[in-house]
Amino acid sequence: MDDEILLTCHPFTCGDEDLDDFFLHDAMRYKAELLGKTYCFVLDDEPKTIVCMFTLSNDSIRVDVIPNNRGRKLSHDIPREKRMRRYPAVLIGRLGINVDFRHQGIGSELLDFIKSWFVDEENKTGCRFLIVDAYNNKIPLDFYQKNEFLFLFSTEQQEAENLGYDMAKSLHTRLMYYDLKKLTSN
């Protein structure tokens, strides 16, 4: 995505003020600083209408901050000599569906696209996992779970404790992951 798309397309809103603000004001700065790259899909018959937007960046899953059971689960299918302290991942930093296209399965289709993108032979980076830092409320958490993402930590308290957050406060987001190895035959 570039500034031209933002200037020539109809205003995009996914109905979440924070996400809308990011796509409108911060996405291009993230790109310029090499922190994340935002992509969008537009309608074929109306290319000024943005259907969805998402931002990706490189990340990793740190096994050293994950409780033993979860760490073993992540490492289970990785050959012992290849086990590492960090596993390469791609962070879906932001994902928004235009309010006019909600409840049509576009979010799930978008996640399927992203998943297939990173297991494609032409992909230029290796990554084992997709991760999201999903808003900690029912709708986004259910959405990612429906799309086979799992919680990196089994409870909010465990996540707060292991990542050094204030355990007295409810977390704003929850870390979730998807193992891309599910999609490969190797």
Rank of each mutant, 00 (worst) to 15 (best):
D120G: 04
S170L: 09
R70W: 07
V63E: 11
N162Y: 07
P67W: 03
Y178E: 03
Q145A: 14
H10K: 15
H103Q: 13
M53A: 11
T155M: 07
R29N: 15
Y135S: 14
T49V: 15
H103N: 14
Y30N: 12
I61G: 08
L152Q: 05
F149C: 01
D120Y: 11
N98Q: 01
L56C: 02
R72K: 14
S185F: 00
L171F: 13
T55H: 00
Y144Q: 05
D77H: 12
K124P: 00
F129P: 01
R72S: 13
S108V: 07
K146E: 12
I50R: 08
I92R: 00
K169S: 09
L171M: 15
R70D: 13
G71P: 06
S60V: 10
W117Y: 04
F149L: 00
I61L: 13
K48H: 11
I61A: 07
G126H: 13
F101H: 04
M84F: 08
L24N: 02
R174N: 12
R80P: 04
T38Q: 04
Y178K: 03
K124C: 04
V90G: 05
A168L: 09
D2E: 11
V99L: 04
L19T: 06
E122W: 00
L171C: 12
G126E: 10
F151T: 01
Y30P: 09
L163Y: 00
F113A: 09
Y165D: 10
R72M: 10
L7W: 03
S185M: 01
L180G: 12
N68C: 03
W117R: 03
K138L: 11
E33N: 15
F113G: 07
D64H: 10
D142G: 05
T184L: 07
F41Y: 08
L183G: 07
T55F: 02
L163E: 03
C9K: 02
R80S: 10
Q145L: 02
F41R: 05
A89S: 15
D64T: 15
K82H: 11
F101S: 00
G164M: 01
L141V: 15
A89C: 09
I61C: 07
S116W: 06
N68L: 08
L110Y: 05
Y177F: 14
E17Q: 15
P140Q: 01
D20G: 03
K31I: 11
L7S: 09
